[in-house]
Design a binder for these strands. Sequence first.
DNA 1: TGAAACAATGCAATACCATTGCATCGCCCT
DNA 2: AGGGCGATGCAATGGTATTGCATTGTTTCA
Lengths: 140, 140
Amino acid sequence: MAHPQEDTLIAKQITPTAMRLLVLDVLQQHPAALSLADVEQLLGHADRITVHRTLKTFTDKGLVHRIEDGSGAVKFALCEPGCTPEQHQDLHVHFFCTRCRETSCLPTVAVPTIPLPGAFQVQETSLVMKGLCERCAVAS
Amino acid sequence: MAHPQEDTLIAKQITPTAMRLLVLDVLQQHPAALSLADVEQLLGHADRITVHRTLKTFTDKGLVHRIEDGSGAVKFALCEPGCTPEQHQDLHVHFFCTRCRETSCLPTVAVPTIPLPGAFQVQETSLVMKGLCERCAVAS
DNA sequence: TGAAACAATGCAATACCATTGCATCGCCCT
DNA sequence: AGGGCGATGCAATGGTATTGCATTGTTTCA
């Protein structure tokens, strides 16, 4: 009852703990996708490994999704409410800004379905566009 | 005169050396995209750092392109002949097989042009599909 | 030809991210 | 209260990418 965020965790079969509520809060507050180091820094001085495992749990349970944007570090962002652990690939495009190095989800831009020749069995499609985000494009 | 591979390097403004010819040869022989460790292993006992810098040079000169397939290590594959250092994003789809962990270029599958809302300025689009490659799909 | 100038190479060392082992802590249930 | 289980946190490890620096090799020019 206390926090509505507890319900968010419970709905995803994740036992609510203080740490997990903190990490969830950080993800909800921040618009861009966050790396492990980002979350650690925003939290103050939380243990890196615990944050790592928290994000892994969130990923496994379908609460967040991983984004490999080529920056070297994996980033995490909240899934759409309908995501499940089995199908938690968010089918939207991600954008990595080469100037501010922020990665953002573009929920309104869907990943197109691309037919492949032959016997390929596609499980997941990742589409990352790189360039200048709206803010940096205007500023430059 | 000697190797036609020398001409390939020279055409890309790369000084031919023994090491670079070896690395180029490995890339040409191998159909799949190769990581730094892959090249190192295929070469026998070449120095890892030299291979790393060789691949960096190749990338800068537009001879190969980097593929971030989420396997943890960046992979490299030869560009199409027309690639330039400024525009060496190969506009084809890459496929990462979750079974054999090989990444391959799909030159016949083009990356679609996706219009973005707002002021985004796209410099590059990376599209990686994951699943079972043709060989592994048949085998399973 | 010989020496300077430059590029490439290779060893050592470092930085960073991700991950595992293990002991401890805390909570829930009986 | 005590057992059991999950979560936490410290320590340690592995892998990849990268830089510094000295050496080697090659080209260029007097």
